[in-house]
Design a protein around this nucleic acid. Structure first.
Lengths: 228, 228
DNA sequence: AGAATAGTGTCTCTCAGACAGTATCTT
DNA sequence: AAGATACTGTCTGAGAGACACTATTCT
């Protein structure tokens, strides 16, 4: 019997999980959805779940998105697979990390529906280190290597902003160019020039004007756009 | 006992493997290292191996690189994790795919040392589909989902060419700008303008002139550069 | 001398950043 | 009318592509 086949049956196998970095923008600040971990003291964790033997990775992500974050159908992309032998003290767990984006309202609904969820603001230090700040102002202690996963998700998102329409996933159906620019600025942590931002977005054809305008504002209403 | 803990012990666990897309440039064409699979008929596969329970993913990659491809220390980066339940007919195997780059000479040495290895040229069809062509001119039949893994590796490499010095990994210690340009052109499948290419490479500081010149050429010798 | 390639100078076009200006809405 | 914001026109500088030119080596 060739050794390759025997490896399938003989060797002890690790558990495989997925973890989800669910990001949104609220109050001009990037936020992440965290779950309370009662078994780990006052630490917080990214929503996650084990990959069952008959499920694909994508199906597992969708299940976690539905059951733990109550956000089926959000934008998701695979991020990186973390497999250090000691990353989870409970045993050997390899985690296929994903990041997901959703409008703030949808995440707020999810947080209201479950007392174990919270939205933590991401504060970027001058040296680039990221701190997740809980609503009470305290810094969240993250379980396992979830801090590293979070940092990598933010980095990936920043890189994708330049050449994709990924920022649109953070906004509701109809939005103004100012909202989109504020979302970009929140992710990049730096201000952007308005005229250049407008031209770039419109020239690329990622969005389409609707002819409708925002209401309720104190000043001149801006036009509403949608994905196009 | 909370359900999270029980998942670690109760559930049936998948096998986890790594697969390696080992790329190089030879004769102005991108090539990939393939292994013969006697148990799968006349099909070819990417070098790979199972992640042992106490090994990290990186250690597994290094082991495969050393034992199967005989190329320790090559440039490697994680690519994507493939986890469709039916991707391997022998059982449930989740594969963390990586891609690696090495100079052609080093890969040719590895191929000479092992009769189960070959270098297949990657021919890109007008529609973008990639065919691995064996030295005898026949198209290689790839095992499992290795065709999809290969395609994704090429796509990632193309994207990285623009903003990183990743092309240098494909060349020997000393190289000319023409060699570097030919490597880029082989990966992109399109010709590049010489002056623009020179300026970009030199301005970015990725490489450093050595003052030495190539020898044995039929015409004017070009200066040799190295990483810097 | 001629051929082939190495390497450079210059023009243009595109695009991002910056600034200032005009337009339109609310109070 | 005043004030605030939406939206636009224009200048400038950086960088890529195209082209032509000079430089150097071998036959």
């Amino acid at each position: 019997m060739p050794p390759k086949i025997s490896s399938l049956t003989d060797h002890e196998r690790p558990s495989v999980a997925i973890d989800l970095v669910l990001l949104t923008v609220r109050d001009r600040t990037l936020h992440v959805l965290l779950m309370r971990r009662p078994d780990q003291g006052e630490t917080w964790a990214l929503p996650g779940g084990f990959v069952r033997i008959a499920d694909s990775i994508e199906a597992t992500v969708e299940r976690v998105l539905r059951d733990k974050a109550r956000l089926p159908g959000a934008f998701v992309e695979q991020l990186y697979t973390f497999g250090a032998p000691d990353r989870d003290p409970r045993g050997r767990v390899i985690s296929v990390a994903h990041y997901a984006l959703a409008p703030a309202e949808r995440l707020e609904d999810a947080v209201c529906a479950s007392p174990d969820l919270t939205l933590a603001a991401l504060v970027v230090a001058p040296d680039g280190a990221i701190t997740a700040t809980l609503p009470d102002g305290a810094a969240a202690t993250l379980a396992f290597d979830h801090g590293a996963i979070l940092a990598q998700a933010v980095q990936r998102l920043r890189g994708k902003l330049d050449y994709t329409a990924v920022g649109l996933e953070l906004l509701p159906e109809l939005f103004t160019l100012r909202q989109l620019q504020e979302a970009h600025e929140a992710i990049l942590g730096a201000p952007l020039a308005k005229p250049a931002f407008r031209r770039k977005m419109l020239d690329r054809g990622f969005l389409r004007p609707t002819g409708q305008f925002e209401t309720g504002g104190a000043y001149r209403p801006a036009e509403l756009y949608t994905r196009g």
